[in-house]
Simulated scan of single mutants.
Amino acid sequence: MIDNLLSPNLIDGALTRLVLVNAVYFKGLWKSRFQPENTKKRTFVAADGKSYQVPMLAQLSVFRCGSTSTPNDLWYNFIELPYHGESISMLIALPTESSTPLSAIIPHISTKTIDSWMSTMVPKRVQVILPKFTAVAQTDLKEPLKALGITEMFDPSKANFAKITRSENLHVSHILQKAKIEVSEDGTKASAATSKNWVRSQDGLRYRGMSMLSPTQPLSQ
């Protein structure tokens, strides 16, 4: 599902020494499948406020759902769509008022919030109308990780990957993650891939346990 994770400009033939990639894949079939004949084009209001005609899944069935509000009294509804086996579900949140943007709700959603949803939801017979969609997102995790305090591996002067190689100073230049999700009548397919690029520091080589930064600087253990 994931393609073109790394663009050619991120691979430096002279400096790149290692690219490590890992991937995860998920495929879940709805416990209550959406019938294809009920899929019709309906109006969908995007985050930019514009309306689009898109294929929408629809079914009338019993689902666990509920409603709550943010600390500043913005109300929203939530619903659980279980997959076969009922060990995994998709949770969907939607503002109660059409004038409330989803972006106003998202900052208040956390694992604690979701735990409260799970404990307060009750089964109800509801009409579910859901976009049939494919979404792709890509981000560089370097800055988010640095904000969490993970900094040394990105710093050419502090990174220590001696267990990978002692012949060169290596540091991580990028950690890119790309994710894709497809939602259809049958269920959900999702995949994510993360790549880490190790590059050689341009200002020095590691040799026999010593770091040689430049001829004008002292050697250090």
Rank of each mutant, 00 (worst) to 15 (best):
M1K: 12
I2Q: 02
D3V: 12
N4F: 07
L6Q: 05
L6Y: 03
L6I: 10
L6C: 07
S7T: 09
P8D: 04
I11E: 11
A14R: 07
L15N: 08
T16H: 03
L20M: 14
N22H: 11
V24F: 10
V24Q: 10
Y25N: 07
F26M: 05
L29I: 06
K31H: 09
K31R: 13
S32M: 10
R33T: 05
F34Q: 02
Q35S: 11
E37Y: 11
E37P: 04
K40L: 14
K41R: 14
K41N: 12
R42D: 04
A47S: 14
D48V: 00
K50W: 14
Y52T: 12
Y52L: 14
Q53V: 13
P55S: 10
M56A: 02
Q59I: 07
L60P: 05
L60Q: 13
S61A: 11
R64P: 00
C65I: 01
C65V: 07
G66H: 00
T68F: 01
S69Q: 12
P71M: 07
L74M: 11
N77V: 01
N77M: 03
L81W: 01
Y83R: 01
H84F: 08
S87D: 15
S87R: 08
S89V: 10
M90D: 02
L91W: 14
L91P: 00
T96V: 13
E97N: 10
E97L: 12
S98D: 07
S99R: 12
T100E: 01
S103W: 11
I106P: 04
H108Y: 15
S110G: 13
K112H: 08
D115M: 10
W117D: 02
M118G: 11
S119D: 14
T120M: 06
M121V: 01
M121K: 02
P123A: 06
K124D: 00
V126A: 01
A135E: 15
V136A: 08
V136Q: 13
Q138A: 15
D140P: 03
L141H: 05
K142E: 05
E143V: 15
K146S: 15
K146N: 15
A147H: 11
D155Y: 03
D155G: 10
P156K: 02
P156V: 11
S157Q: 13
F161P: 02
I164L: 15
I164D: 13
T165S: 12
S167D: 09
H174R: 12
I175L: 13
K180D: 03
I181R: 02
E182V: 14
E185A: 11
D186P: 07
D186N: 15
A192P: 01
T194N: 01
W198N: 10
R200E: 06
S201G: 09
Q202K: 08
R206Q: 15
R208G: 08
L213I: 11
T216L: 11
T216Q: 09
P218L: 07
L219P: 04
S220C: 14
S220P: 06
Q221N: 07
Q221A: 04
